[in-house]
Design a protein around this nucleic acid. Sequence first.
DNA 1: GTTATTATGTTACTATATAACATTACTTTA
DNA 2: TAAAGTAATGTTATATAGTAACATAATAAC
Lengths: 170, 170
Amino acid sequence: MALSFISPLLPHHDHNRCREKALQTADRICDNRGVRLTPMRRQVLELIWESHKAIKAYDLLERITPKAGTTKPVTVYRALNFLMEQGLIHKVESLNAFIGCSFSDHQHQQLLLTCSNCQEVEERPAEAVMEAIDRELEQASFTIYYKAIEIHGLCTHCAKIDATANHIIE
Amino acid sequence: MALSFISPLLPHHDHNRCREKALQTADRICDNRGVRLTPMRRQVLELIWESHKAIKAYDLLERITPKAGTTKPVTVYRALNFLMEQGLIHKVESLNAFIGCSFSDHQHQQLLLTCSNCQEVEERPAEAVMEAIDRELEQASFTIYYKAIEIHGLCTHCAKIDATANHIIE
DNA sequence: GTTATTATGTTACTATATAACATTACTTTA
DNA sequence: TAAAGTAATGTTATATAGTAACATAATAAC
């Protein structure tokens, strides 16, 4: 099976590059828009990009430096709100947690697939799904402001590991 | 424009019938499954069906009788969890609130359309959307456990009212 | 350099949800 | 039908999530 690109969710991708790219993109986007990616906001974004798992506001709070543990909730929520407004992160509503957006320059509001085993979140533009939703909403004469499309289940890597484990046991 | 059925979300539908039907369905479903729709659980379901707006756990708490105001959060959350397990209600994740399920006997996990103006929630089976999601997840080799598909925006009634209001102002 | 604006700090609080264990209510069956 | 087992609810306490209101600091605009 030939992959045309390295999925960011393959177990051993170079996550440093992942994070650096996201931060550079954020710098560029904020610069273009004339909004300020302040040190606090940038640090929150960086912490969110530490992994592909969704992270909770209070976990971010503990990791903010300097004075780790002394930063107040409102500070982190303000940074999170800014990052959401700029489309740099998503809130996973069904987890009360946040992930970096891999499609900041393009459309937002992708499908969010969360693995219940490894907790990694994959973003999928899923155009066919979005078109089906648009058609459905047109039928309902419903004007859309915001979409949260969240699926929880077992990702392909965890399914394989599970299958292997079962095989060994047999 | 001829409607083939009376939408439960039309402003003046007979909501008593709506609620009664939901409770009867719940009674039947629980009976069939050999699970107990106890007075507490039934009351919570009834309170949820007071309207088509999503209701929060702590608002339910205040309305539970007897001893309104003395019931503890854990009691209401236990009832809510039971009702969710039985597919009698949905949690609107992006609101931390709950609505009655209009399709308890059939498939679950519909689209939830929440109007940001009137707060009413409409459930839509939206088969085309669900099929598109299934195809997308098959491509991703993702095994689904749970879906939350939530749209916020302006419902058709509120859009019309808005349009009328604008017309009057002009 | 002063003023205006934006961001962050501080204090306090509101809102949402669960853990652990005690008691009560139903169900089973001896 | 009384005893035992199971399921539901009560009680106390606490964990987790998020915001309001006002003070101070940092940056931008003039």
